[in-house]
Nucleic acid binder design. Structure first.
Lengths: 188, 188
DNA sequence: CCGCTCATGTAACTGGTTACATGATTTA
DNA sequence: TAAATCATGTAACCAGTTACATGAGCGG
């Protein structure tokens, strides 16, 4: 049977989580998204429950029904085909858009900073730097936690988030130095 | 009239582009997305044309019909209400998810690196580092270009992308040093 | 004049969102 | 035992995607 091998970002991440914490329920997968310090997705029930069923229909995971008391539930496990698909999704090869510049909603906003009156501009930058500091503390704490539980990759991912945030902080300070006390029109 | 003040990311960015390059056609807006070195969105016609009409209906932009030869077209300009909405969208205040950890599809994949056999893992990292280097060169060239045209904010945004990519490169090298020649199971 | 790119849209689809419904389990 | 939270879904909606249609202008 002709097997689709492509996965969306959410599908890839979900399949990866199944691989990581299997056997697991859909709710356990949701919790990973919900408690992640970098919530790329809402981890809403409306996304996850249909998604894992989709993966199941494609033979990438198998589910086993169980019951606690009277309530039915399903435990999901990755299949060999699922692992293969997960590996293909991770890469190599790596698509240029994956290794290229990541989306950054803060950078998007800075692009239009000149649309703000000077006072508001300063407050924007102060606000952003404060927000980044908060995020840095949270991520740093999380990374140390992973290290303590000997979760090597979890720690590495946390380090990645941390280094990204620090780079962004350094950059915002550059922007502040550049713009403070200067006047800008649309074209700079 | 009760004016919705919320904008999606694409709507905010589009409104910002109108502010930046007005008066402009929908196609000119598309070109900005299409030629951007960090293509967060496809800039597809099916997204932009309906979107600007939506902005127009909300009174955030106004359009003036023109005609070249027999072909009709529209030039869009931001309204005072539109500028206000744009400013509100930019912030302050800045939502935590905006200043927090940005999504990074490469980091997502690294999270599941232990699912790859060791050889493929090494190739993944080599591939990723090569891809990042390519992106760095492209972004650096773009940033210098903006500087040359005295586009201060354009240059600043390019710098932001550059610093992010460099941080990611440094991080990937950490990951490589950490994993090369080591064996990993799911839980590290 | 043929083909290519510029330009302006429309149509159908879909993945992920919010909101809702409901049952089980824990806690005050 | 009432309230809150855990857990398992379903339903409606919608923004952004790909694919299509079509016309203008230009280069060979």
């Amino acid at each position: 049977m002709a097997q689709e091998t492509e996965l969306s970002e959410l599908e890839g991440a979900t399949l990866g989580i199944v691989w990581d914490i299997q056997p697991c329920t859909a709710y356990a997968i949701r919790r990973v998204f919900l408690t992640s310090p970098s919530p790329s997705w809402s981890g809403s029930a409306g996304a996850i429950y249909p998604l894992v069923e989709r993966l199941s229909k494609r033979g990438l995971v198998v589910s086993e029904a169980f019951r606690t008391g009277r309530r039915p539930g399903r435990q999901y496990t990755i299949t060999p085909a699922g692992l293969e698909t997960l590996r293909a999704w991770i890469g190599p090869p790596i698509q240029p858009w994956v290794s290229g510049v990541p989306v950054d909603s803060l950078r998007t906003r800075v692009r239009f900073l000149a649309a703000l009156p000077p006072g508001k501009r300063d407050r924007f930058l102060a606000d952003a730097l404060a927000g980044i500091d908060i995020a840095i503390r949270a991520v740093d704490r999380d990374a140390r936690l992973r290290l303590a539980e000997k979760n090597v990759m979890g720690h590495a991912v946390g380090r990645g988030a941390l280094l990204t945030l620090r780079a962004r902080r350094a950059w915002l300070r550059e922007v502040r130095a550049l713009t403070s006390g200067r006047r800008f029109s649309r074209r700079g």
